[in-house]
């Protein structure tokens, strides 16, 4: 790295080294722009997916007949590889960020609908009966009893969907809207090692930071789950919760 400090023709940029402080210094604004694009594409996709997933999950719960087809469609969507998903959306939206955002919304929707459904299914019947006995209507029951109790599963879904979306946004480089993926793509074409490694590393950092922020949010919003986890740990291993079961099925690529 001493050569990096020296700069000039002998510097790490000229040598095309993997680790290069000079690259970080000279391309700061490019890296920042790519990171900002990466964040808004991911955040927008998760926000839209969440807005769509809630009514879909509630509907799939109310009309039992809609449940099996809804889950089948989401499974099919989730199986489609990301490059194919973006390519299939190309004729609909052209070369635009909408291709990437729509693809990510479809993937996130799958995780969120499944997790919210699992969370709603896990609401104890007694809690529901008690609320009804107290005169709660179905709307109040949903918003004041069922959704709060399904919140841990929902947030677990948001964490999985967010980390997945941060990683899949890079593939958006194929239509020119991949955030840090654009830098990876350009770096690949020009064999620019420092750019590829730096952009990849920032991607991983983004995913980890997003995951930790959401974990913190999850703890802050659902303080009761921590007490329960501690109690369960004393009693010994338990059956996996709905959310952790879904953790076993990953999505990437």
């Amino acid at each position: 790295m001493s050569s990096a400090a020296a700069g000039g023709p002998q510097g790490c940029l000229a040598q095309n080294e993997w680790l290069c402080g000079e690259y970080l210094r000279t391309r700061q604004s490019e890296l920042l722009d790519a990171t900002v694009e990466h964040i808004w594409i991911t955040a927008l996709s998760i926000a839209i997916a969440l807005l769509l997933a809630l009514p879909l999950a509630v509907a799939a719960r109310r009309w039992r007949a809609a449940r099996a087809p809804a889950l089948a469609v989401t499974t099919i969507l989730y199986t489609v590889p990301s490059l194919a998903m973006f390519a299939l959306l190309l004729p609909v939206f052209g070369l635009s960020a909408a291709v990437v955002v729509t693809g990510l919304v479809l993937y996130s929707l799958t995780v969120l609908v499944r997790n919210i459904l699992a969370g709603l299914d896990a609401v104890p019947g007694e809690a529901r009966e008690a609320a009804r006995g107290m005169g709660y209507g179905s709307g109040r029951l949903l918003f004041e009893v069922e959704l709060p109790l399904a919140l841990p599963a929902l947030l677990a879904g948001v964490r999985i969907a967010t980390v997945t979306a941060v990683s899949l946004t890079t593939v958006g480089a194929i239509v020119g809207y991949g955030g840090l993926g654009n830098l990876i793509y350009d770096g690949m074409e020009s064999f620019f090692k420092a750019q590829v490694l730096t952009a990849s590393a920032i991607c991983v950092v983004l995913a980890v930071v997003a995951d930790l922020l959401l974990l913190w949010l999850q703890r802050a919003l659902t303080p009761w789950t921590r007490a329960r986890t501690r109690k369960r740990a004393v009693r010994g291993p338990s059956a996996p919760t709905a959310a952790s079961t879904h953790d076993l099925v990953g999505k990437a690529g």
């Binding site: 990683s167 993926g181 690949m188 590829v196 980890v208 995951d211 953790d247 990437a252």
Partner: peptide, 22 residues
């Protein structure tokens, strides 16, 4: 064994493919 899946999710496949090919 359990955390490996979470870690795998955070690493972009595209980045690893490009890094290894270079």
């Amino acid at each position: 064994a359990v955390n490996l899946s979470n870690a795998g999710r955070a690493v972009p496949t595209f980045a690893v493919l490009v890094l290894l090919s270079m």
